[in-house]
């Protein structure tokens, strides 16, 4: 097969509209995973102010919490974490061979539950910033 045609990877991610539930679950799980590990590094970096002085730690954290954008990012982070947890539980079930027939439904369920939890926590997260 000296001359055959390779259509490249466009044919996989270029066809995102044709993705099914399991594929979306995977994409979102990877995406939220990247955000969480990225956040972990930032988190430790911010908390590292504690090594300087107690005051600096308190000031930095409270200063950040005063920013409206930080509050919104926190809601986003909560949504990301909740989805990763719920879909993670779904994946653990799949690994144990439980309920493979309804893997698409459990994905939709984790999406809906994530939305509900994120929306319900908005008052708590935005409290006192406005």
């Amino acid at each position: 097969m000296s001359s055959s045609y390779d259509r490249g990877t466009v044919e996989s991610f270029g066809r995102w509209q044709e993705f099914s539930a399991g594929m979306w679950a995977w994409v979102l799980h990877k995406f939220t995973g990247w955000i969480l590990i990225g956040y972990l590094f930032t988190h430790i970096a911010v908390l590292s102010t504690a090594t300087q002085s107690p005051e600096m730690y308190t000031d930095t954290l409270q200063g950040l919490e005063e920013l409206v954008i930080v509050r919104f990012l926190e809601i986003g982070l909560l949504a990301v974490a909740v989805f990763h947890i719920l879909n993670g539980v779904r994946l653990l079930m799949v690994d144990l061979g439980i309920g493979l027939g309804s893997q698409d439904k459990s994905f939709y369920a984790s999406l809906v539950l994530t939305a509900v939890i994120a929306l319900a926590s908005i008052p708590t997260f935005l409290g006192g910033v406005f």
């Binding site: 099914s20 399991g22 594929m23 799949v94 690994d95 061979g97 493979l100 698409d104």
Partner: peptide, 26 residues
């Protein structure tokens, strides 16, 4: 295998491929 279930969905003979792969992992 990342349990995307793509294979199971397209299999024309309805073989539960993901299920079999998962069982072999265990």
């Amino acid at each position: 295998c990342q349990t995307q279930f793509s294979c199971t969905e397209v299999c024309p003979k309805d073989i539960p491929l993901t299920e079999h792969i998962q069982e072999l992992k265990r």
